[in-house]
Amino acid sequence: MKFYRKIITLFALLLLAGTVKKPWEAAIGADLRHDKLLSEPLNLTTRESIGQTSSAVALGGLRSVVASFWNIRAYTSFEESNWVKLEDQYETIVALQPHTAYYWDTGSWHLAYNAAVSSRENENFPAPRREALHRTYINKGKAFLERGVKNMPGNWILLSSLGRLHGTASKYPDYEKSAAAYQQAWETGKARNFEARAWFYSLARCEGKDREALHLGRALFIADKNRVDTLCCLLFVLEMRQKNARPIEELVKLCFTSHADALRMLEVYKTNNAENLPITGVDHAIEWLKSVQNK
């Protein structure tokens, strides 16, 4: 057979085989996507931002490798305080590996904590601009983490980070969102006791959720491992806030192991209250405890 005729026949055979394999490949692809074993194709913006070489490597099925190296590059941007570049780099990293919680968490931490504080302290900008940048980066960090949670809904680490970010007093807090995130983290069944307590702390700071917070606090207090100083004090405060609150002596007995402990814990609770936890009645309780001690 002549060479060219052979090549044409070859292409015809390839096309014929192609019609057989195409639906087969489509079915396998659908199954793999269903099992989350295949990621969505890279979009054009991501390809442009990672450059030709990395794009070729990523196209060659090595997305995780490109993401790892971009993560190292992003660390250099962090050291140089180049926040615009860092933000772009994390956008690329999560586009390459959307199911790695570490990248979502780290990217959000860089934006909401490092970039925000660094911008606020950057004396090259006038004060109002610094404040605006500070707020912008905090909001970017929150939005980034929220996207991470949407991508990986059952991941307690991301939910916990989101709860912390929304619940930090210096980060323009939204305690309802914080409580919801901590609650979801706790309900995954994988989180630490801390997430349950943090849910209580955030709930106690939500407007009009005193009753709900009190019920949660009482439930948590039953377990010995939850009886940390902050939880005992906050539960005491919420009990004190009730309309028909029990006498102070009874509440101290209920929430603390001794009068001395109660006095020490409440004093620390009041002075170290950077997170704006409710302190209704704390002064009164401290005075009462001091008077009892002096007797």
Partner: peptide, 14 residues
Amino acid sequence: LIFPNFQLFNVIDA
């Protein structure tokens, strides 16, 4: 139709 779809083998990322 002619070329194999190598993307199906990118399961290693997942």
